[in-house]
Write a protein that binds this DNA or RNA. Structure first.
Lengths: 380, 380
DNA sequence: CCACCTCAG
DNA sequence: CCTGAGGTG
């Protein structure tokens, strides 16, 4: 009985699911996953975006965000188009409605049949090549089919024990999802990680994928994670970060030695909701690891050293909570950042903060375009 | 009925209170406070120390701690003997027995009639000129009379609402205490502060005293505080720190302008359990304030930049907790650090951490000797 | 396993 | 006031 609601099949979104049903019926799920060379009848993103806007007519307009070119960015070279990366904790539906206690957000603003269009609209507006999501509890019934019809390959990994499962009308556990455009990348390897802390498995997970960029043949390693939340767990986050870094290191060196030895390391992008301010240990761990990771959003600041003032901003019964928890890490030696999507201002976010009628999550989406730097010159 | 126990008057410590009773009967409390020039019959610290050792025979020996001379310390000049400063959160008796949950510490190790000798032994071993304590819930019945008999002036400030008061067999609220040797200093002014955060009064307090060094006539401002505990309260601690610094600034400039204008600022020492790791905001606030404060214990590290790895180390039901929370701040332009008491090693602390049969508190005592630097040369 | 509440010390 | 323990969605 509740599956009708979970599938989102109400009258207000019949158009979306009309478009969606087409591609689904012409290409069942199994085939999408397996038959990568078969050119499927894909959904037109523009058409889908129009459907979103139609369904969201009663909502206030989504505030505009500028794409900012960081000062000193190297102009893009030909045959080296930028790779667009999006990082977003989309807020689990069960948590948003059930227990997160966003007291200044009307419950109605969180109803899934409409909220999913807000999420989709954001994704479709920017059409990232790599999409990293956290708190996904509508993967199989919503994001997998829709993103597949738009030409994306998707991977989902649920938390071993999700807090969503304790809520009456839940839609299964939440977890991380990683999507990439099949037209842009081919998949070389996937690792589904359960993060450990001091040898013990925790409730947090990560996905790592080794991709090959279709036109250039260059490889790119991408990863997504969602670390333990709340203050008081700084040590656990730090340990999870250490474990994650170690496993990334292992995967990079495994795959690096495979095709060509020592020709510089594989470019790496790590997206995540780290649930940690830049002052925390786990942040320092990431910024000083041997992997050579930099946080992309620092480039938005004038000194290039400062993270945004917030990536999440909400009002709970316990008070207002504004913090910087989400990051896009990239290897600065092999990748350069060409553009960054600006952070909405306090005014754009509004006095009731997030989520709201015009923004579906308590976290702001992060988006940047990165470019491969020149191949390191062979010295022999 | 419970006052007998609270006064510590059991058979095992009759000797201590025998010695104590002498000086008390010959000089009632009011007179100690008022009649500073009258040379009271004082308790001999060595005799008291022997009493402590006798009462603690059944306990394992207290581990030895070295007094370390920081590399590059200026040798002490004549007529400028060092001032010994001790900072210690001694663990409130009610909290230790009642609710702090030190699951690896036998309850027996915390019984007050013995534990107070452990605390006293530590103080008597080093005989500081300035003693800053937190979590004192046996001030009037124990520390005030004993320290007074040893020639100290004491000041106590209870928290407005102490968690001790919620425990069955409590001995009153806990608070901060500040002692100084009457032979070394005379008292010029005392401020009892209730710390505020964003205009609102909090449950945390501080004592600030303006002293005059007896032989040299130089002034010294000393302060003690105990900030809000636990993770999740970083913002409050930072605000409390800001308020504290502002009030210190005010007191320094008030007294500084009084006797001689602009002859360099008054030397300042601030001791406290800040309940904050060096990564926290409130630490940065202190180290970068216009008062020019440095943290003395950084000088114990080889790079002179790093705080000790821990000043408290305990095992609670929620797990092991090792952190650096206590600091001795000093004005580096007017004071130099001559010696520091080393931090006990992990082996000395033992596998069950703190408190224990050989250490009375979950916090390690900090101790350093500071010296006045040369008076700034008068240019006119 | 997570975030809230409430309850007692 | 403050904090652990215990219950609920």
């Amino acid at each position: 009985p509740s599956s009708v609601c979970a599938m989102g099949g109400t009258s207000s979104n019949s158009r979306l699911f009309g478009t969606l049903a087409q591609s689904l019926s012409s290409a069942p799920l199994g085939q999408i996953e397996l038959d990568l060379d078969h050119n499927l009848a894909e959904t037109d993103p523009d058409q889908l975006l129009r459907e979103c806007e139609e369904s969201l007519q009663r909502r206030p307009a989504r505030p505009h965000r500028d794409l900012v070119v960081p000062t000193g960015a190297v102009p893009r070279r030909q045959h080296n188009p930028a790779i667009r990366i999006m990082q977003w904790n989309i807020l689990a539906q069960a948590l948003g409605e059930g227990k997160d206690g966003f007291i200044r957000c009307p419950l109605d603003a969180l109803n899934w049949p409409e909220r999913k269009y807000l999420i989709l609209e954001e994704i479709l507006t920017y059409l990232p090549d790599i999409l990293c999501l956290q708190e996904v509890d509508h993967y199989y019934d919503t994001f997998q089919p829709i993103m597949a019809s738009l030409g994306y390959h998707g991977t989902f990994l649920a938390k071993p024990w999700s807090p969503c499962l304790d809520i009456e009308q839940n839609n299964g556990p939440d977890g991380c999802a990683l999507f990439f455009r099949r037209s842009r990348f081919s998949l070389q390897a996937t690792e589904r990680l359960r993060l450990s802390a001091m040898m013990l498995p925790t409730n947090q997970v990560a996905i790592v994928q080794m991709l090959t960029c279709r036109p250039t043949g260059r490889r790119l390693c991408v990863a997504v994670t969602h670390l333990k939340a709340r203050s008081g767990w700084e040590r656990l986050r730090s340990a999870q970060g250490a474990d994650f870094l170690q496993k990334l290191q292992r995967m990079i060196s495994q795959n690096g030695g495979q095709r060509r030895a020592m020709s510089g390391s594989i470019p790496l992008v790590v997206c995540g909701d780290f649930n940690a301010e830049p002052t925390e240990d786990v942040y320092k761990r990431f910024s000083s690891s041997p992997l050579g990771l930099s946080s992309a959003y620092k480039l938005l600041s004038s000194d290039k050293q400062t993270e945004p003032a917030y990536t999440t901003w909400k009002i709970r019964p316990s008070g207002e909570c504004r913090s910087t928890l989400d990051y896009i890490w990239y290897t600065g030696d092999s990748l350069s950042v060409e553009q960054l999507l600006d952070i909405p201002t306090e005014e754009q976010i509004g006095p009731d903060r997030l989520p709201s009628y015009h923004y579906p999550s308590d976290h702001i989406s992060l988006l940047c375009d990165v470019c491969f730097r020149e191949e390191p010159h062979r010295l022999m």
